[in-house]
Design a protein around this nucleic acid. Sequence first.
DNA 1: TATCAATCGGAACGCCCTATCCGTTTTCGG
DNA 2: CCGAAAACGGATAGGGCGTTCCGATTGATA
Lengths: 229, 229
Amino acid sequence: MSSTAHHPDGQPLRSDAERNRGRIIAAARTVFGRDGLGASMASVAREAGVGIATLFRHFPAKEDLVAAVFADRMDAYVTAVGEALDDTDPWGGFTGFIEAICAMQAADRGFADVLTMTFPAAEAFEARRAEAYQGFLELITRAKRSGHLRDDFASQDLILLLIANAGVVNFAGEFAPDTWRRFVALLIQSFQAPARGPLPDPPEDDALYQAMRRAGPAGPSTQERPGGD
Amino acid sequence: MSSTAHHPDGQPLRSDAERNRGRIIAAARTVFGRDGLGASMASVAREAGVGIATLFRHFPAKEDLVAAVFADRMDAYVTAVGEALDDTDPWGGFTGFIEAICAMQAADRGFADVLTMTFPAAEAFEARRAEAYQGFLELITRAKRSGHLRDDFASQDLILLLIANAGVVNFAGEFAPDTWRRFVALLIQSFQAPARGPLPDPPEDDALYQAMRRAGPAGPSTQERPGGD
DNA sequence: TATCAATCGGAACGCCCTATCCGTTTTCGG
DNA sequence: CCGAAAACGGATAGGGCGTTCCGATTGATA
């Protein structure tokens, strides 16, 4: 990848502009990965060694930077579901996929946040999310047919798991980085067939989508306390 | 309750001061319950119909207001564990307690946040938290002895559940308020004996305590987006 | 009713955030 | 190598936050 970026009218960037663009994305990868999407644009500019105006010239809004930075993570997301579908063991593919994306959340706090939001303006970005989701639906079907996944498992349960794991990762990631493994293992065991009991109905897809919309960038990932000390 | 407040030197408050104190606590209950601890002090003052300075005279720091507002919720927390211990069915007591406190999280976003933080300055407050935790340890022991709770369940798993459920409640509470019920039901089923598989070790208590310290007030509960729109 | 301390409330402080303005510097084609 | 276009970056705007200051007001007392 790393295809050189261009202006909207097709002209290539000047050499210094292209260099800075790369630095900014690399810096944002580091900062968002460590601090979550709550990290400030100024901290990204500092890490990149560029002025704040340069950052905003390349990415007019924070959302644009986020979409650019996590494009390759979304690719990895799609790849992960593809590999899970290639697995000859439906249950192993299903659980392996869940563990893989939760590991991605643990490895990158920014991506953990990204997975629980939508960025309607970034269409290619959202298209990949939808693609992965379609693949996951197929994973569900196969895992149910194999008899290993409980029949009342709903696709919405993946969103719940991602939300919950984002919370666990943001909470414990710094002091007990592996906590998510135990948490995810527990949930996966509850997904296993046969069901140990009935479940309340899952939420409507629309409701979850609205909830994902509500949180634009700059929300999550428990920030530093403002007043504290 | 509602014992009239007094000055540090024992004098009673002037009538208007006492009236305002009550209004502030009632307003904070409303605002924190609806918006989480991320709600601003100014919004509490507005809801109470008092000036911002009046709020800070009664509660010198946000943490003090939080401790005052949620004192009765902490009492309810302790009461809930006591009632669970009175249950003749160890597993029913255990699961009932978990459902009860998760319901409290869903009913009050502020309390959902409170359960995942510590306020070392508010000693009586933290003493109640410790009291409830001790009771929960006894609930665990009994539920394991009855053979209904998996042997490798750890007390730390309660913290993980509270963190995860706080995330679910904050995420879906507005658009799909009952989502937490399904999520909690799933986790409870994974707690049930016999274990369906091994689990990674739980985090150290110290690590979780540090994580709870890290988040002072004014962190959580996905705020309104600053730049957005 | 007069007095004075207790209490009130809005303006202001200091810090952080996203985003923009504009004078300065750098790149690159002729 | 020079000049115009492109890109740079620090200062600034505009808003939100927790918290503090201080002149105006109000409740209790005599």
